[in-house]
Design a protein around this nucleic acid. Structure first.
Lengths: 195, 195
DNA sequence: ACCTGAACACCGTTCAAGT
DNA sequence: ACCTGAACACCGTTCAAGT
């Protein structure tokens, strides 16, 4: 698809790798296959990612995991309405879930590999949203982990279930969109009980 | 440790594999290394697990994932006290989290592989506990997924964070026990808002 | 029935060599 | 600076052969 002599860059390598994972699964992401897709020998990749496949996988995580929940900057310096935080976290949760499911092959990496920066940014911004909503520091920290844990965990359950379902399998057709939203509402309602 | 001529069985293979994963990580679980640990050629394993490594990994999941939340059968036919369900789920959540963290290397498999029976049993028993506590069917289904999603997701966040932390790293010492319990309480409190 | 040995088609990565 | 080719030490798995 791309011109054969487009220069090899770190970004292009990671984008192509993500494309392979989304299309064929994590198990088929191979340095040799990645080289083929880039029209280059596999060994050329090491010039741009010296740490090799480790660095490649970390790049995939960073690309998928970092979706801050930062409040959209208020238009004219006004504070966001205090009651908005639940609606805001609902829409952030929906967006984050959608991204995780779009790149379901990266999910196991996201949960496993110690790539501290990737999730740290997201956690910090969740905490900040809760603090601006009036929660104390300790409650904001607990709440951020509760929300992120739920969103990631539920996305993983969904990815498992929908991947396993054969298209003609009529048993237990679950409305995952609704179930995720309902569960997120449970978590958000529970946050009100924090000290 | 075991006698060299102990017979090779499916259970012994899976136990030994789990031991390797717990001790050295999932990446070092190899058919050849597993054969060494069993004092047997790698190819002998295929005789007991015809589907090979696929079947081995499914066996690991089944061993770790299936922890039903079933209520301990009441002593003399009495129903468990209706108010007990939160305490019961709190203690079940603690036990499930502990098991997941004990076998953190299996976590990515648990979240990724389509081994329907493994988590189905746990989900069903969570649903049953909620139904016995008085929740309607739809609410029990939502609640079960919310709880399980939170527990698994939070365990994964913990496993990541604690694996990454160097022992002398003083930054941000988190009390994960407390944080998990507080988050689970958030979820359980939120369940009360379900219709 | 249960295990072995050799072989096949793959991996990730190193390293000297080309341009 | 950027890429290639050959090589090394590994994989999972098949298959014929041994007992």
């Amino acid at each position: 698809m791309t011109s054969p002599r487009e220069p090899l860059t770190r970004d292009r390598i990671i984008d192509t790798a993500l494309h392979i994972v989304d299309g064929q699964g994590l198990g088929r992401l191979t340095m040799r296959r990645l080289g083929d897709a880039l029209q280059v020998e596999a060994m050329a990749i090491y010039h741009h990612l010296p740490r090799g496949k480790e660095e490649l996988l970390d790049g995939l995580i960073a690309h998928v995991a970092a979706l801050p929940a930062a409040w959209p900057r208020p238009a004219n310096g006004t504070r966001p309405a205090a009651g908005d935080w639940r609606a805001h976290l609902r829409s952030w949760g929906g967006a984050y879930r959608a991204r995780l499911l779009d790149h379901a092959g990266v999910l196991p990496l996201l949960m496993t590999r110690r790539n501290p920066t990737a999730l740290a940014e997201t956690t910090a911004s969740l905490r900040e949203v809760l603090r601006m909503a009036g929660f104390l520091d300790a409650a904001a920290a607990t709440g951020a982990h509760t929300i992120l844990g739920y969103v990631i965990g539920h996305a993983a359950l969904e990815a498992r279930a929908t991947a396993a379902r054969r298209p003609d399998d009529p048993e237990e057709a679950v409305d995952w969109d609704h179930r995720f939203a309902a569960g997120l509402d449970v978590v958000l309602a529970g946050l009100l009980t924090l000290p």
